[in-house]
Amino acid sequence: QRITLKDYAMRFGQTKTAKDLGVYQSAINKAIHAGRKIFLTINADGSVYAEEVKDGEVKPFPS
């Protein structure tokens, strides 16, 4: 399943989102408010992988 960072954070909370991605909650808040195009893939085992689309390139998040 693929979902935006904002939607994932709204569904699970910023604290869990940060923990799942290995970053601080403040980084999640800042990324959402900056309007960054970050998409999360939720794997069947429950693990989460995030990618950011920037300038036409897709890069892992966090980099």
Rank of each mutant, 00 (worst) to 15 (best):
Q1V: 15
Q1L: 12
Q1F: 08
R2D: 04
R2I: 10
I3P: 03
I3D: 03
I3Q: 06
T4F: 05
T4H: 09
L5M: 04
L5Y: 01
K6M: 11
K6V: 13
K6H: 12
D7N: 05
D7K: 05
Y8S: 01
Y8I: 01
Y8R: 00
Y8H: 03
Y8C: 02
A9C: 13
A9H: 06
M10G: 14
M10T: 13
M10W: 09
R11C: 11
R11L: 15
R11K: 14
R11W: 11
F12D: 02
F12A: 04
F12Q: 04
G13E: 01
G13C: 03
G13W: 02
G13Q: 01
G13T: 03
G13A: 01
G13S: 03
G13R: 00
Q14F: 13
Q14Y: 11
T15S: 13
K16M: 04
T17A: 12
T17I: 05
A18R: 02
A18I: 02
L21T: 03
L21Y: 00
L21N: 01
G22T: 03
V23H: 04
Y24H: 15
Y24M: 15
Q25K: 12
S26A: 10
S26Y: 09
S26F: 08
A27M: 14
A27L: 15
A27G: 06
A27N: 08
I28T: 01
N29D: 14
K30V: 10
A31W: 12
A31M: 12
A31I: 07
H33E: 15
H33F: 10
H33G: 11
H33C: 12
H33Y: 11
A34K: 09
G35W: 04
G35F: 06
G35A: 10
R36L: 13
R36K: 08
R36M: 08
K37D: 09
I38P: 00
I38H: 00
I38N: 00
I38R: 00
F39Y: 13
L40P: 00
L40T: 02
L40D: 00
L40G: 00
L40V: 15
N43A: 10
N43Y: 12
A44T: 11
A44K: 10
A44P: 14
D45G: 05
D45H: 05
D45A: 06
D45V: 04
G46V: 02
G46P: 00
G46H: 06
S47K: 15
S47L: 07
S47C: 08
V48Q: 01
Y49V: 13
Y49M: 10
A50V: 03
A50S: 04
E51H: 09
E51M: 07
E51K: 05
E51N: 06
E52N: 01
E52R: 01
E52D: 03
V53P: 02
V53R: 06
K54N: 13
K54E: 13
K54Y: 12
D55A: 09
D55R: 08
D55F: 08
G56H: 08
G56L: 06
E57R: 13
E57F: 11
E57D: 11
E57G: 10
E57H: 12
V58G: 05
V58A: 10
K59A: 10
K59W: 14
K59P: 03
P60V: 07
P60R: 11
P60K: 09
P60Y: 05
F61S: 02
F61A: 02
F61D: 02
P62M: 04
